[in-house]
Design a protein around this nucleic acid. Structure first.
Length: 454
DNA sequence: TTCCACCGAGTATCGCGTGC
DNA sequence: GCACGCGATACTCGGTGGAA
């Protein structure tokens, strides 16, 4: 009964709001001189008036166009969310900025973002980069890009997760089915050799940069199809995977599986800190590359083999002087990097040709890595003190999608580990892992794609 | 406390461009 | 010409902060 009253009260409020909105619409319509232009759609909505609203923030059409394009690419390839955008845009370039320290402090982080912004925005407008209209336009377009991305990911959710449309489009069923995957169940024993390799993440990435058709009608062992037409992938000339792309795919995948209605920095329903997790993934992947950690390098190798098998260049590691102890944050990575170095030295002594064969481009140290697409990782694999602030009860940003207790992927992960022994040979022989992993993962997790029934 | 304006975000829909 | 992807537009919804 109480619920009923609550519902009625809520309904009443809703109707009141709707009436108020209608009044506003009526007033707005009255104020507009649109008598001749506005025709009603069958649904009753007015058609888009492309020439009105949305003030043009930048007068110069060419400049605006370039800023818009830069913002779109920046969203997917550099930073999904921009914290303190006005502050970042207004920063003075620090000539002493070292990419390797990017995650050490907020100042370094902002400098890193600023450096990327300046790479995307044509040099002739660098002087105007702190212009409020530029900032506003840039932010607006980033928002739009995120919005479109979230909508498209949800749209092809059944293809990403290989589940039925009925299951995916039912909030309750989807939440129940994927709650482990989105972090409600924490598996403290992650497997770094499985992280970020879940086919769902790759399909999400594919849908975003190659279009939704690239993941429809796939055979069970397929993850993506080459983009047949012009897509953002071709437009932006993406030739290799980057940390940003993988991290982006991770958070979008989690969002798609969650029952959050909107893709916000913090999920309104789940409390998942998408932005926080995203930044954490980035940090992990960038650091892993910089430290030449085999498990992280392998992530990029796996992704590149799938998306850019022949064209991909060596993933770029971040060069520069190394500031030790990055907040003690990625101890695992440091330890693994050290271990890998020791093994490599041992192998070299035995003149292991196989090992040399596998030390390709990944090891080339290059200046900062803007082109890298983002990888996804699971925080569970990191020391507890290394995890970002957990403000939301049991919700860990684990991206499940790769490595949770009970999930198909984690099952195969554990099996692999047990068979080979914890952290055994896989670390020093990343070469053969890739194909096996994907196949395993695909077999376990991928249900044949279902035709879209909506 | 309530009202209001503003803003951010997602959705539905459309037009344009591109490739087959 | 058609199908598809991309981007733009207008709309709704919800949150927030300030004023009354």
């Amino acid at each position: 009964m109480i619920r009923l009253f609550g519902f009625l009260r809520h309904d009443k409020n809703r109707i009141t709001i709707q009436l108020a909105n209608k009044d506003k619409e009526l007033a707005a319509a009255t104020n507009r001189d649109d008598s001749a232009e506005v025709s009603m759609r069958p649904s009753g909505k007015t058609p888009p008036q492309r020439s009105q609203l949305k003030p043009q923030h930048i007068a110069d059409a060419t400049q605006r166009s370039r800023i818009v394009q830069a913002a779109h690419k920046f969203t997917y390839m550099n930073m999904l969310w921009l914290r303190d955008s006005e502050e970042v845009f207004g920063l003075q370039v620090d000539p002493d900025y070292i990419p390797a320290n990017r995650f050490k402090s907020m100042e370094e982080k902002c400098q890193g973002i600023l450096a990327e912004l300046r790479e995307e925005i044509p040099a002739k407008w660098h002087d105007e980069i702190s212009n409020v209209m530029v900032i506003h336009t840039f932010n607006e377009e980033m928002t739009q890009m995120r919005s479109n991305g979230s909508h498209r990911v949800r749209e092809v959710g059944p293809f990403i997760f290989n589940c039925s449309n009925n299951l995916f489009y039912d909030d309750e069923q989807r939440t129940t089915k994927f709650k482990e995957d989105i972090g409600f169940v924490v598996n403290e024993e992650g497997d770094k050799w499985k992280m970020f390799r879940n086919p769902a993440l790759m399909k999400t990435y594919s849908a975003l940069v190659r279009g939704v058709k690239s993941i429809q009608g796939l055979s069970p062992d397929e993850i993506t199809k080459p983009a047949a037409k012009s897509t953002v992938e071709t437009k932006w000339r993406v030739r290799s995977i980057t940390p940003v792309a993988i991290a982006m795919a991770a958070v979008y995948t989690r969002f798609a599986a969650s029952n959050d209605r909107s893709f916000q920095a913090v999920g309104s329903q789940t409390g998942i800190g998408y932005q926080e997790d995203y930044e954490y993934y980035l940090k992990y992947l960038y650091e892993g590359l910089r430290l030449e950690v085999p498990s992280v390098q392998d992530i990029f190798e796996v992704w590149n083999d799938i998306f850019y098998p022949k064209r991909s260049e060596a993933p770029k590691t971040i060069s520069g002087s190394v500031d030790e102890d990055l907040d003690g944050f990625l101890n695992d990575l440091h330890a693994e990097a050290d271990e890998a170095r020791v093994k490599q030295q041992q192998n070299e002594q035995v003149s292991d040709e196989d090992h040399m064969e596998h030390s390709p481009s990944w090891r080339e140290s290059r200046p900062c890595s803007r082109e890298l697409t983002e990888p996804q990782m699971s925080k569970q694999n990191l020391p507890s003190n290394a995890r970002p602030h957990q403000s939301r009860s049991s919700l860990r940003s684990s991206s499940l999608l790769m490595d949770l207790e009970g999930s198909p992927s984690s099952r195969c992960h554990r099996t692999t580990r047990n068979e080979g022994g914890k952290n055994s040979k896989k670390k020093s022989v990343p070469k053969k892992r890739k194909a096996a992993k994907i196949v395993e993962s695909s077999e376990d997790e991928n249900i044949p794609p279902q035709p879209k029934q909506r």
